[in-house]
Nucleic acid binder design. Structure first.
Length: 320
DNA sequence: AAGGGCTTCAACCGCGTCATA
DNA sequence: CTATGACGCGGTTGAAGCCCT
């Protein structure tokens, strides 16, 4: 027994919208608003369309503040950084990009950015191999080499959804998120590991940070990995927390209206977690980190010796 | 010029979540 | 507490345009 359809699909028009339909919908919404009921809207607006179709058309195309195409380097970096940390939660990612819709961001990632990421990952792996060869004789390099050789499944918990494998291009898998996140390892993320443990940090990082204590001990013998390729400025070494925490914490300066999301330069980005440690109690930052990775809270919370298994309600509503 | 393959992106589908009666 | 309906989201599809041979 399935769900009742939202409308009679045989009697409503489907497919591409005509300019006349666009005008009808636009003028109706601008004059009357959505009325909080998309199902009833097409009838009121004189459209022979499904309510969901109207909603999608308005949200993804007709809204006056929509930007189409022309993604900037900054936007690329935001998308990549967030994707590496939270996976394919396009609505959250799009909410950090004014004028962008989840559908647009999703399409952009699937058609362009993902390829760019894969190419850069391959480049990074080549650098890693070279780097491992240079350090293979010393003890300090062994853990990094072992971690680099570790299977990707270490981060499978980041993206629990076993996405269909029917489309190699469009499917956003756990390994995508994980491997791309690994492209930009951040020494600062490890230095701040007891506070900002990242559950998707693998591969180029010394080891999966499944436990803050492990991360802490690893940080002590951490060998900085190869830097991102020259010219690959976007998302370089920026933990999600650097750009996300301020907003969740109510920092009104995020995102900057016309500036660089990542601060004045790489140094500013790398310093952000440490500055946050100064500004907020470690417990609060642990709670917020847990919000990013709701699929793996137990380990971290147990390790952090918290009385509760979950962060306080309302702390991270937009991500859970 | 033709046509086959590739890319892009608007639109659809189905499910999870939430609000409300 | 439960049922129902609407919304919102992520995954997927397919038509149109582009590119290459």
């Amino acid at each position: 027994m399935g769900r009742a359809p939202c409308c009679d699909k045989t009697s409503v028009k489907r497919g591409p919208w005509s300019p006349e339909e666009d005008d009808l919908l636009r003028s109706y919404v601008q004059n009357h608003g959505t009325g909080g009921n998309w199902i009833a809207l097409p009838h009121k607006a004189g459209l022979n369309r499904c309510g969901k179709s109207c909603r999608l058309r308005w949200l993804n195309y007709l809204r006056p503040d929509i930007k189409h195409g022309g993604y900037t380097e900054q936007e690329d970096r935001v998308i990549c950084s967030l994707y590496s940390s939270i996976g394919s939660r396009w609505s959250i990612i799009a909410s950090k990009l004014p004028g962008r819709t989840d559908n647009d961001v999703k399409n952009y990632w699937n058609t362009k950015l993902k390829k760019k990421a894969i190419a850069m990952q391959q480049q990074q792996q080549q650098q890693q191999e070279y780097y491992q060869q240079q350090h293979s004789s010393g003890g300090r390099g062994r853990r990094a080499a072992a971690a680099a050789a570790a299977p990707r499944s270490q981060c499978a918990s980041v993206q629990p959804s076993p996405a269909s494998a029917s489309s190699a291009v469009t499917t956003a898998s756990a390994s995508d998120a994980c491997s791309f996140g690994a492209m930009y390892p951040s020494p600062s993320a490890l230095q701040a590991a007891p506070v900002l443990a990242r559950y998707d940090s693998t591969a180029a990082a010394p080891a999966p940070l499944s436990l803050p204590q492990q991360a802490s001990s690893l940080a002590a013998e951490f060998v900085p990995p190869a830097p991102p390729p020259v010219g690959a400025s976007w998302a370089g070494g920026l933990p999600l927390d650097d750009m996300f925490l301020p907003e969740l914490l109510g920092d009104s300066e995020f995102p900057p209206g016309d500036g660089d999301f990542f601060g004045a330069g790489a140094g500013a980005g790398l310093l952000a977690p440490l500055l946050l440690q100064d500004r907020f109690p470690a417990a609060s930052l642990q709670e917020l980190s847990a919000c990013y990775f709701p699929n793996a809270p137990a380990e971290m919370w147990a390790a952090a010796d918290h009385a509760h298994a979950k962060p306080p309600a309302g702390l991270c509503h937009s991500l859970t």
